[in-house]
Amino acid sequence: MTQADRPGDMRATVRETYGPADLSAVPVFAGGFINFGYWRPEDLDGPPTVDDRIRSQQDLYRRVLDSAGPLAGGRLLEVGCGLGVGCALAIGEYGPARVTGMDIHPQQLERARRANAGLLDGPGPERLRLVRGAAEDMPFGDGEFDCVYSVEAAQHFDDLARFAAETARVLRPGGRAAVTSFFAPDPGAAPRLAELLDTFADGLDIARPPSELTGALARSGLTGVRCESIGASVWPGWDHWLSGQWKPGTWPRNFRLAWEQGLLDYYVITGTRA
């Protein structure tokens, strides 16, 4: 286990971005969700509103949770839960018995506890729990979950093979995994992505092909592993939202350029524990 894999020893860029810098408070990530969004065609007509933006982020969660199959009564784990607002959405709309939100960053978990105080401290059975842990070293028992999902966090994981192995371990037989994030279809794209996008240049995001994760999941015991591009529902809408805050040619606008050049795309990856 390397230092970066231990929950207390995050890479410096991850520690700063999700700690003191508090990415969740940046207006571009309105609503406390930290993802690029899953956009509807009509969202591209006219200036995007904050309501459009929040809905796009909620819809990305719905896209992932829908791909995991029926979730009512199940035990769910979100890897990289951030403020836990996606956990709350899952509880409110999908009827699981309980959702566990896991994040490597203690400051994110503190914010998540404040944001979800009603779910954590309310009467009745515990519907939400928040746990500190790394994607590569999950603090859970074997077969503890019916579904493991992750929304726009895998681009930060140090070791996708270990994440896949841990996902397989904590899933019950027949349990489902659903992961969405952005990957580099061309394994040689890393230098160009670092030129275009600051988050790849500073090491916050790691350029890897989606096959690195799909192959690792299959080797770890998941069957029916599927990888679907959803970039057409992510990048144009994200860029449209950015257009009201960032000028063309600034680095955040280069996400769409990287997609158009085939350097980057967005995927939903699913599989079932054998």
Rank of each mutant, 00 (worst) to 15 (best):
Glu126Gln: 12
Ser243Arg: 13
Val170Ser: 07
Ile91Gly: 01
Gln155Asp: 04
Phe157Asp: 09
Thr250Ser: 15
Asp51Ser: 13
Trp238Gln: 12
Pro27Phe: 00
Ala153Gln: 15
Leu204Phe: 00
Phe29Met: 00
Gly46Val: 03
Val79Phe: 07
Ile230Met: 13
Ala72Ser: 15
Phe183Met: 03
Ser220Gln: 08
Gln58Met: 10
Ala177Ile: 06
Gly101Thr: 04
Arg62Tyr: 01
Gly124Asp: 01
Arg208Asp: 00
Thr272Pro: 01
Phe145Gln: 00
Ala216Ser: 07
Gln3Asp: 15
Gly19Phe: 12
Gly271Pro: 03
Ala25Pro: 15
Asp5Ile: 09
Ile269Glu: 02
Leu128His: 02
Glu42Asn: 14
Leu263Asp: 04
Asp51Gly: 12
Arg129Pro: 00
Thr199Ser: 14
Pro20Phe: 13
Glu212Arg: 15
Arg114Leu: 03
Leu109Trp: 12
Thr180Asp: 00
Asp137Ile: 01
Trp235Leu: 12
Asp186Gln: 05
Thr13Phe: 11
Gln58Cys: 07
Asp186Pro: 04
Leu44Cys: 10
Ala178Gln: 10
His105Thr: 10
Asn116Thr: 02
Ile34Glu: 06
Thr180Phe: 02
Asp43Glu: 09
Gly237Leu: 02
Pro125Tyr: 06
Pro210Asp: 07
Pro209Ala: 01
Leu217Asp: 05
Lys247Arg: 15
Leu77Trp: 07
Asp239Ile: 05
Gly124Met: 06
Ala4Cys: 11
Gln107Pro: 13
Val50Ala: 05
Gly221His: 08
Tyr18Pro: 06
Cys147Ala: 08
His156Asn: 09
Ala97Pro: 09
Ala189Pro: 10
Phe182His: 14
Thr223Lys: 14
Leu217Ser: 04
Pro173Gln: 08
Ile269Trp: 10
Leu77Asn: 07
Ala97Glu: 14
Cys81Asp: 01
Glu16Asp: 14
Glu126Trp: 04
Arg127His: 05
Phe182Thr: 08
Glu228Met: 09
Trp259Val: 10
Ala117Trp: 05
Trp259Arg: 15
Ser67Cys: 08
Ala184Gln: 10
Thr270Arg: 12
Gln245Cys: 14
Arg129Gln: 02
Ala189Asp: 06
Ser229Asp: 05
Val99Met: 04
Cys87Gly: 00
Gly174Val: 06
Gly19Cys: 06
Glu110Cys: 12
Ile34Lys: 13
Pro106Gln: 07
Asn254Ala: 13
Gly46Ser: 04
Gly133Glu: 05
Ala117Ile: 07
Ala190Gln: 08
Pro27Gly: 01
Leu77Asp: 04
